[in-house]
């Protein structure tokens, strides 16, 4: 999503103000000449300056340009869904991988995105399961990445090679 540079500059300015004030409030515990807040303050002032300049530059061309441009695909529900499914899938993974285990989580995750992308469930579901099994075998069983086993936990001793 493209927003007007006045807003971009404003957001950067705001971030800079936050960083600078937080840095200012950090008091060093020992009498250091330059405490833990010194660098954040420099960075904060830098961000504020750059943000202000971006906003000022954009103000001069403000007339005739719109505040925000929503991309073409975002007007259709399918397009929005195809986009939003990506962050949503990651959030689902974080929530579900503990209780369900990696195998089930990855299968559900892949099958859902396949479906959203228009792959027929008849093909998508077995494909998702197959991929999840392969990834689980490679990462957890062979490479010993501590992926959650979830409901398989009691048997996982036999599944780690």
């Amino acid at each position: 999503m493209k927003v007007n540079d006045v807003i971009v500059g404003g957001v950067i300015l705001g971030l800079g103000a936050f960083v600078a004030t937080t840095g200012y409030m950090l008091r060093p515990p020992r009498h250091l000449a330059y405490g833990p807040g010194f660098f954040p303050m420099l960075i904060g002032f830098g961000l504020m300056t750059v943000g202000a300049l971006i906003a000022i530059q954009a103000l001069s061309t403000l007339r005739g340009s719109s505040w925000a441009t929503v991309p073409e695909w975002a007007r259709s529900r399918g397009g929005l869904l195809r986009f939003a499914i990506i962050p949503a899938a990651i959030v689902f993974y974080i929530v579900a991988v503990g209780p369900l285990g990696f195998l089930a989580t990855a299968t559900i995750l892949l099958a859902t995105i396949f479906a959203v992308n228009g792959v027929a469930a008849r093909r998508g579901l077995p494909l998702a399961l197959g991929l999840a099994v392969v990834v689980n075998l490679v990462f957890a069983s062979v490479l010993h990445v501590p992926l959650s086993w979830g409901v398989l936990e009691p048997f996982s001793g036999w599944l780690i090679w």
């Binding site: 515990p29 833990p36 960075i43």
Partner: peptide, 28 residues
Amino acid sequence: LLKGLASLLFGLFLATVGLDPVSGMPRF
């Protein structure tokens, strides 16, 4: 150049999150 600098400063800010390497004080 301005947007490049903004991005650079943003990265520098991200690097300060966590424990300060010198005093050990938590930041952000």
